[in-house]
């Protein structure tokens, strides 16, 4: 299995938009790409993970302006059911060209909604730009709360940024306190449904991106489909991003391949173990 999926090109990139970079997780790729697509009429709105009434609990919403897009900057590391708003975006919001961002399972769900639109009336032809984010796993809200409050000893309200990288879960507060936890501590809080996921870099997105493989403040970007190539090409021509060839940055594509292989190997094992989970009884395998 090709762990990185099909792609046409891969680069290390960073947004040139200072306002977006101010609160972006890494290179500001997702927000910048949607901002460009919105401005050019490639999309007329996007389903994103925005803030809710609880600190750090994301809530899916439909953004139709740049100001709304900006609210969704940054990674939240807990579950946000974007796909629940996919049909709604074409209905209540009346969008004809929908952008959507999601982790690999949500991109899988989006493509399933396009190919098998069983309950997704009029959705397949209205999806205009699908941006995927690399994902190892997410946490349920309560799990994340335990990590931040019990293990890192910080109030969720006071957290400015969370980061997973280099084997650590990092919590940075508004006042500048930095707490790092080894991922060994956080593993048990992961969402179980993540452990059967066989996709790390959103193999079927138009464009997929994440920090892994690129230097701090930059993102690794895979351009995968015709739509992805078209939109990314136009955004580049418009000066939305600065880029570096992926083979000239550290740690580079090798790191992406390594993590993708790790995730898929580990989770394939979980899927295989489910086949003989009980005594002569299997737990269901969604992939066969």
């Amino acid at each position: 299995m090709n762990v990185l999926g099909k792609y046409k090109s891969v680069v290390s990139a960073r947004s040139t938009d200072k306002e977006i970079l101010k609160a972006s997780q890494d290179g500001g790729i997702v927000t910048s790409l949607f901002a460009y697509a919105l401005e050019q009429g490639i999309i007329d709105g996007a389903v994103l993970a925005g803030p809710s009434s609880r600190p750090w609990q994301p809530q899916p919403f439909v953004a139709t302006t740049r100001a709304e897009l900006l609210k969704a900057r940054g990674t939240k590391y807990n579950i946000c059911p974007q796909i629940s708003m996919l049909k709604e975006a074409t209905r209540s919001y009346g969008l004809d060209k929908v952008g959507i961002v999601g982790v690999p399972c949500q991109i899988q769900a989006t493509r399933k909604a396009q190919l098998y639109p069983i309950g997704m009336r009029d959705v397949p032809d209205k999806i205009a730009l699908v941006v995927g984010i690399y994902c190892m796993e997410v946490f349920p809200y309560k799990g994340m709360q335990l990590i931040v409050e019990d293990h890192a000893g910080q109030k969720l309200q006071s957290v400015k940024k969370m980061e997973i990288g280099k084997g650590k879960f990092t919590v940075i507060t508004e006042r500048g306190n930095v707490t790092q936890l080894p991922l060994k501590v956080t593993h048990k809080y992961e969402q179980p449904g993540c452990h059967v996921c066989l996709d790390y870099v959103a193999n079927t997105a138009d464009v997929s991106t994440g920090s892994v493989g690129s230097p701090d403040g930059w993102s690794t970007v895979f351009v995968r489909s015709r739509i992805g190539e078209d939109v990314w090409g136009k955004a580049m021509a418009a000066g939305c991003f600065e880029t570096k060839p992926i083979d000239q940055v550290k740690p580079g594509l090798e790191m992406v391949t390594k993590l993708a292989t790790e995730k898929i190997t580990k989770n394939q094992k979980t899927v295989d173990e489910r086949a003989h989970f009980g005594v002569g009884k299997a737990l269901r395998n969604p992939y066969i």
Binding site: C80, P81, I83, S84, C105, A109, G119, M120, G193
Partner: peptide, 28 residues
């Protein structure tokens, strides 16, 4: 078939697909 056997990852497809809005997403 999905949630009880540890497969749900909270994408929200079910809530999006339900024609009678019988499904909401609570804590993902």
């Amino acid at each position: 078939e999905v949630i009880n056997v540890g497969l749900c990852m909270g994408c929200g497809s079910c809530a999006g697909a339900c024609p009678v809005r019988a499904i909401s997403m609570e804590f993902g």
